[in-house]
Write a protein that binds this DNA or RNA. Structure first.
Lengths: 291, 291
DNA sequence: ATATGATATAGGTTTTATCTATAATGAACT
DNA sequence: AGTTCATTATAGATAAAACCTATATCATAT
């Protein structure tokens, strides 16, 4: 039985004529007659009493009419809700990201409607998530904060980066990252998680004695590395081709997991899931897939 | 949108998997997926959020789920009512008829289920209708009795009937029905409406002086006419072919209207209408159609 | 008689639903 | 890391349903 059949039945019941009801329903009279007959055969009971001068509901038809009406009511309710949903503009999603991820992701998702961007530090972003000042954030996982949920996006290798003409580059052991004294280890300031991670990595490798220079932007560091014998660590997405720098892949030993973090009970779950799916399938991440 | 689609949606919503829901609905997974997608396209809103490990309702899907459920509830109510209706045996219809109609109609409708017959006089039948001892009756119209309704069935010509070898037959004027004294006018006793009608016809034609013989059965009269010089009046359906009698058609001047009479507010309207339609299309009445 | 308006039927066409086979992806398990 | 098993999506072909036009039948009104 089709919902359209119910329209036919209700029209015929109200009008008392198959021919006129067919006109109202914009179909031919035989079509309407046949469809109604099929419903009657399905039910095994006649809904209408046919007469050469018209039709009227049978006793059974009278008793089930209200059910048909209620079905139609619910159908129109569904359509009304759908229309409302369609016409309602998507709420704006405020997406934050750490500085070492934002420039490599944001440019590729500017086509998503009602999405605004914000770049900040992990600490700040988590605070804003909790204060409902942003709806989601691209952060390095894990983020173990009550009320916050995360979905992993990609596993990003770290590269050791040096100028191609850096004479010490070939001597660096990528396991220990033991640097000759002529090299400084340029890292981001510690408010950036990337800087923090790098610092802990240095400590882990007992490179405390390295000369360390703290910058606030990967791009600054990139330029400094290119024009010196200094080295740095960069996430994979920061890699440029033909930029005079050498990249040594430290993965899988050294990497970070970037994920989408959001408040568990947000009203925007659906949009955030869409965003997650969208980011996850970005071309620029095709090499960094995680399960 | 098909009602089956709603089953698909509800199954998928409950189970959380298109593949499993398809199995439950006895269709293939692609069919279910496509049907649901079509509903979503129709509504312009996604009902489900697809995931590689299954599906779940979208926010919109959640809000309209109850409407879909209510539709399905009403559908099953309709089916329940239909089943009840089907399994309920048709109530018995008690059909009466006057003696001059019963033998020509009853034999052709014995195939109707739950129909019982009764032959009596007009007065008796009307009394039984009013007392709910019968549900409908074949009577000569008009029947103007409060509470009773009638539907015409056929217009039945009267024939003047004489033996083929009756020497006076050719001399009878069918307008005046003036009989030679050698002929008697055989009529049914007056409790039969046919007898009554015939008697009034005689009076109308000032044939009071005719010799009149009252019988209680048309068949008795038929035989008496065949073996005498007497004549009689018969309704068209009583005519036999090759029975040695001559029939002179008195219509349209003399005829009777037979109809189906029943109590206006009976519970059996539908069955009585069916009966009416059935009788009206009997082959033996094909020459006697009325509008 | 004739025309009008009603439902039913028949035959052919178009639209819709369905199936099978396959792709693409993620999760779980060696 | 590869394999298997689960999932949904897609494509092409087939089956089923809906629909239309033309026509039949009947009742009614002119």
């Amino acid at each position: 039985m089709n919902l359209r059949d119910i329209e036919y039945i209700l029209a015929a019941a109200e009008i008392g004529s198959f021919a006129k009801a067919a006109r109202v329903c914009h179909i031919s009279q035989p079509s309407l007659s046949i469809q109604i007959k099929k419903v009657e055969e399905l039910l095994g009971c006649a809904l209408f009493i046919r007469d050469k001068k018209g039709v009227r509901l049978s006793e059974f038809g009278e008793t089930v009419l209200s059910y048909f009406k209620e079905i139609q009511d619910n159908v129109s309710k569904i359509h009304t809700m759908a229309q409302k949903q369609r016409s309602e503009p998507l709420p704006t999603i405020r997406l934050g990201a750490i500085a070492t991820a934002a420039p490599y992701i944001f440019p590729y998702i500017t086509d998503i409607e009602n999405l605004v961007f914000e770049e900040s530090t992990t600490v700040e972003l988590i605070k804003k998530l909790l204060d409902d000042e942003i709806d989601a954030a691209l952060l390095a996982l894990p983020v173990k904060v009550p009320l916050l949920t995360s979905m992993s996006l990609y596993k990003e290798p770290f590269y050791l980066v040096a100028a191609q003409n850096n004479p010490y580059a070939q001597t660096i052991d990528v396991e220990t990252i033991a640097l000759p004294p002529e090299c400084r280890f340029l890292v981001l300031s510690e408010e950036h998680c990337m800087g923090e991670q790098t610092m802990s990595l240095c400590k882990l490798n007992r490179n405390n004695n390295h000369k360390i220079f703290k910058a606030t932007s990967l791009e600054t560091i990139r330029h400094m590395v290119a024009t010196s014998n200094d080295i740095t660590l960069m996430p994979a997405l920061a890699r440029r081709h033909n930029d005079g720098l050498s990249y040594y892949d430290l993965s899988p030993r050294y990497h970070r997991d970037i994920g989408l973090v959001y408040k568990a009970r947000t009203r925007h779950t659906e949009q955030i899931h869409n965003l997650h799916a969208k980011v996850k399938t970005l071309d620029c991440l095709s090499e960094l897939k995680t399960n």
